[in-house]
Design a binder for these strands. Sequence first.
DNA 1: AATTGGTTCAGAT
DNA 2: TGAACCAATT
Length: 580
Amino acid sequence: MGIKDLLRFMKPYIETIHINKYAGQRVGIDAYSWLHKGAYSCSMELCLNSDTEKKFQYIEYFMHRIKLLRYYKITPVVVFDGGNVPCKAATEEDRKRKRSANRDLAMAKLKEGNVNAASELFQRAVNVTPIMAYQLIQVLRSEKVEFVVAPYEADAQLAYMSKIKTGKGGVVAVITEDSDLIAYGCPAIVFKMDRYGNGESIELNKVFKAATCKPSFRNFDMELFTGMSVLAGCDFLPSVPGIGIVRAHALVSKYRNLDRVLSVLKLEKRNQMPEDYAKSFKEAIAVFQHARIYDPTAKELKHLMPLPQNLLQSFDGNLDFLGPEIPQVIVTSIAEGNLNPSTKEAFDKLEHSGLPLDPIVLKSNRQQLKVQVSAAFTQESSFKVFGSHNARENSTVTRPNLVPSKDKYSGEALALQKLIRPLVTCGTVEKENIPQETPLKVPGNNPFKIRPEELSLFQRENPDEQVLAAKSEEYMDVCIYSESFPEERPENLSRKRKFQTICSDQTETCDDQISAVTVIEEEDPDMFCGNVKSQESVNSKTIKLTDLKRRGASEKKSKKSSGRETGSKNSSILNFFSRV
DNA sequence: AATTGGTTCAGAT
DNA sequence: TGAACCAATT
């Protein structure tokens, strides 16, 4: 996927970052990359189109990351792929073949009763469908998350959005897994973002400016860079045999002109070069430069970069390789998520055709919803589940009471419905009844969430008081929540302050074991997170933080035996935290 | 000697 | 799926 070996080649220009670098700014998201990762967790259910809630786990995965971004005050803009560009057809076919081969193998294993082997194969068979995208879109809408469906490649759309002003729908950076974004000329890209917000970023201007860095791009411009990428092999065109990223870079550096590179290549590789390589090459370059994108301000189809007349002529006025033109009404409708970008059919029709949700169930639920919302507003006891962001400030919503039905798809519709209306407030009584049904409820959805097996390591005997530790390279995130707060808490001191005070006390008593403390207050009043940077040295008197960190990282598997012991070994720190 | 391109392994979820 | 590894190729 993407440009072969490009990320490895660009390694010297890649730096590890945390997503909070973009706090307060708009960031574009390549929906496909998260949809695809999320689909792993429920690949069998998706492939078998099973009628269970688990099938929508990919949506929870996605929304968890959206929440992470919002937590760091980032405005996410989700971009979906639209129709396929003709020159990508070969790649698409290839992937489709591999997927269905894996699916058949998986089905065979399933028949044998080998579920493990089957599920492994199903993971290689998952496909992200427009319907899955549409189901996510419905949740994004209900969460007031900005999104756009690209007419064709999401990458091109994201590159365009990176080039326009924030006020006109632009973004400062793009989160993706696809190295194509570099070839499209996207100025700031974040790859491999994990669930804590750590990732690897590349900034194009640094690439072109760098004076000494190893693969040098000093004499490159964006067109040469794109040329190098296409030569190395991309989704639109496989490379000439024997040409990889290193030789592609060498050729472009040497001749500094794509036409010259092509003619040299023709001479040197005349036997192995496909007849129409030059033509395909120019088309591929043209896609990277002038792909069709949607201009959200003008609400119309445009080119990523304006198309010069002479280029149009060189293709005999035929730009169908960019994907056919689409009438204005249709592109807009696609962009806003109302039409399936491949079939151009209304998504509503898909629903009516039986799969995957029953619109009648959904509609009646919405009505019910409204009634309950107005009821909820009259109650003081309602609580907010989500982190702060303006769009939601005053929109407390209630979960409907869903009546089970025998309808074949009702289970599925209900499952999705729950995701569409996740910000639930039903007052204190329902609060007790609903927790597991609330997909995004903290702390389950906390950005510092840790896995159940890690969690069990640090659970206190008293379930009301828990100390959780999750680790990353240099930070340990300590997360404390407690139903009841200690009596000694001064009335005038906020809980947040109290935590900070105690932590700084600890800094002194621990002899600088803790070098930095930040506390983030969650909206759930019983939930706090502290991000505690600990030093490497372990002092026997104060094992706590560093030791917890190490245990969290390495002893996941032996949790049973070490769990209790950890609790007692670290009793001083646990006592310390339980004072909060 | 360097690069490509196929294979294998570990990791994610 | 990607990264790391390794053997074949130029």
